[in-house]
């Protein structure tokens, strides 16, 4: 019974692993899917993750199949009363499996360091957007030509030009939040008392969703982030409309539409 159960489990886990790899299908799609990047940084991060995931999967199958194989192969058979050879160890083998994983793992070091350096240094051509996290909303400030900045209203999406490096300055005057839009870039915490930096780029026009990723109290689950990656001109128009969307054109383009009344149907 145990044997069949074990093999069935193995089958199920293999199937699960396979399903996981075929991540194109419906159940694997999400507006916050880290495996469906829409910008250079998120794309790098997905690739780096896979660099580690493939060897990890290899070790995973080696250990899991190894355990199942060993248990089935060496389990006590009926009538076999002889005790096994008392092997206490094997220095060559053990030094081998100390050094081999170390070598594999150290191969990641250059990747890790270059990746950290890349993500840690905002490119010079980036536009710098200020991000303000409060309990439980976001607000963004955009740079103006004259070096000052202008803030959008609370709850408005962040607008950024497509294919443009964007640097963020993250500010909080309350608790810790974390700015995260999975399809564009991994998160950086928004710490009170210090200004953190991150940068990313949106390479596809569209609306991208994220949410606060650091527990920040009662409204943590409902502190969404929306980033609109738009053509350069749209971005310019948006910033020009700030802070109050005073012209009708601004209102029409950037203010959320009133909910359509049911009576109009």
């Amino acid at each position: 019974m145990n044997r069949s159960l074990a093999s069935r489990l193995l089958f199920v886990s293999l199937l699960g692993g396979l399903a996981f790899l075929l991540s194109g299908c419906e159940v694997f799609s999400s507006p916050q899917n880290t495996f469906a990047p829409a910008g250079e940084i998120a794309d790098d991060q997905k690739r780096w993750f896979l660099y580690a995931m493939w060897p990890a999967l290899a070790v995973f199958f080696f250990v899991q199949l190894g355990c199942v194989f060993i248990v089935l192969r060496f389990r006590k058979k009926k009538g076999d009363d002889r005790l096994p050879k008392q092997v206490h160890g094997n220095n060559v083998l053990e030094i081998g499996w100390s050094i081999a994983p170390a070598l594999v793992l150290f191969a990641f070091v250059p990747l890790v360091v270059t990746g950290i350096v890349k993500l840690g240094n905002t490119p010079d051509d980036a536009i710098i957007v200020d991000v303000y996290g409060v309990q439980w909303q976001w607000n963004y400030g955009y740079p103006l030509e004259d070096g000052s900045s202008v803030e959008g209203p609370f709850g408005d999406p962040m607008y950024i030009p497509v294919d443009q490096n964007v640097g963020l300055r993250l500010h909080s005057d309350n608790v810790i939040h974390s700015f995260w839009v999975p399809k564009l870039a991994g998160k950086t915490d928004v710490m009170p008392g210090r200004t953190n930096h991150m940068w990313f780029v949106g390479n596809e026009i569209g609306t991208f969703h994220g949410q606060c990723a650091e527990f920040c109290g009662l409204g943590h689950a409902e502190m969404p982030i929306v980033v609109e990656v738009v053509p350069r001109e749209t971005y310019d128009r948006y910033v020009a409309c700030l802070p109050a969307f005073e012209t009708p054109a601004c209102e029409e383009e950037f203010l959320p539409e009133e909910p359509v009344a049911a009576a109009g149907e």
Partner: peptide, 16 residues
């Protein structure tokens, strides 16, 4: 999965 966390720059996606 712990090893995948040590790939720091991609862990920014998995953190939290």
């Amino acid at each position: 999965t712990g090893v995948t966390h040590s790939i720091v720059p991609s862990d920014y996606q998995q953190q939290d």
